[in-house]
């Protein structure tokens, strides 16, 4: 089931099955690829992986230094003492906990509303018959071509008119109408056999109940994929919250962190402590849901 489901979600290519990029599956040794080749490959990979970890490690190392030693020359990784002072002062003095809350609240709301609106619409496009259905569907698909960046100016004047500047709704609402979510759900629904729905309709279940009690439970993998890319995109979105929010208490994490450099000046340990704390939530989520996140992104091919 899982592999079949992912094939269907795999919209613009890059088909994916349950094995994909799964660390637990034993690797099949490939013919003609010698042992020496594998040693070279391992060596190169470890080198590149170390290079990729370096900036993160340096951020953590800096955050653990006493403020006075962060700018020592020559650079060294470990200072005279390892201290959590920078983390403490950032968490106590700054707005960071508030920004965590704002980001979590708005990203969750965006994800839930996107999944609901998108799956309902996709159910209509996939299973209901009404005049103008195809035209409407193409009309929705055309929205995929519109880059959000070019809408910032008219959206902002609209938010002013709605009196939603500096509010949670101002962050949330412009991010919930996702044509890509409709597209992915429709692809998925089109692959569910009709018999299931007919059996339920004969039982006298309404369409809305069919959607909620049969379709939604069957669509867990599509829901997971849409939720993941929606949540990650909403959590990391910078431009729109940056424009619609000016009050520091209402800022999301990325917007708040963009003000940190000027707020803390040259206190690099505190700046790096903020950066580490800012990056941590999604990295922790990634550690727990590696497979789902990687499959969700590879299977849908959606770039933030």
């Amino acid at each position: 089931m899982a592999s079949q489901v992912n094939q269907q979600v795999a919209a613009p290519g890059a088909g994916l099955n349950a094995r994909t990029a799964d660390p637990d599956v034993p690797k099949s040794p490939k013919q003609g690829q010698g042992r020496i080749g594998n040693w070279i490959a391992t060596g190169l990979l470890i080198l590149f992986a170390a290079l990729w970890f370096l900036p993160l490690a340096w951020a953590v190392a800096t955050a653990l230094k006493p403020e006075a030693e962060t700018t020592d020359i020559p650079v060294k990784w470990i200072a005279s003492k390892v201290t959590l002072e920078a983390f403490q002062s950032v968490l106590n003095a700054g707005n960071l906990p508030r920004w965590y809350f704002n980001s979590a609240l708005t990203s969750l709301a965006i994800t839930v509303i996107t999944v609901l609106l998108g799956s309902l619409a996709a159910f209509g496009f996939s299973r209901a018959r009404f005049r103008g259905r195809n035209v409407l569907f193409w009309f929705v698909l055309a929205g995929i071509m519109v880059p959000g960046q070019i809408l910032i100016v008219p959206l902002f004047t609209q938010m002013q008119a709605f009196r939603m500047v500096d509010t949670y709704w101002g962050i949330i609402l412009p991010q919930v109408a996702s044509p890509i979510a409709v597209f992915i759900f429709k692809q998925f629904f089109d692959g569910i056999p009709r018999d299931l729905e007919e059996a339920a309709t004969l039982d006298g279940a309404s369409r809305l109940r069919v959607y909620w009690q049969i379709w939604m439970p069957l669509s867990r993998s599509a829901i997971a994929a849409v939720s993941i890319f929606t949540f990650v995109a909403a959590w990391n979105n910078f431009l729109w919250p940056f424009i619609v929010i000016t009050n520091p208490d209402m800022m999301t994490l990325p917007v708040g962190l963009s003000q940190v450099q000027t707020a803390y000046g040259i206190r690099y340990a505190q700046i790096m402590a903020s950066a580490v704390l800012g990056g941590l939530p999604l990295l922790v989520v990634f550690l727990f849901f590696q497979r789902q996140i990687v499959q969700g992104i590879a299977g849908t091919g959606i770039k933030g």
């Binding site: 660390p23 594998n38 990325p254 963009s258």
Partner: peptide, 30 residues
């Protein structure tokens, strides 16, 4: 290829992708 510890490389190459742009900017300006 048949290399050990695949999860490690995926973690290394993919985790920066999940960072917000402002975290990336803070780290790299530093």
């Amino acid at each position: 290829r048949a290399v050990p510890a695949r999860w490690l490389y995926r973690l290394a190459f993919f985790s920066p992708y999940l960072l917000p742009s402002s975290v990336v900017a803070l780290i790299w300006v530093w």
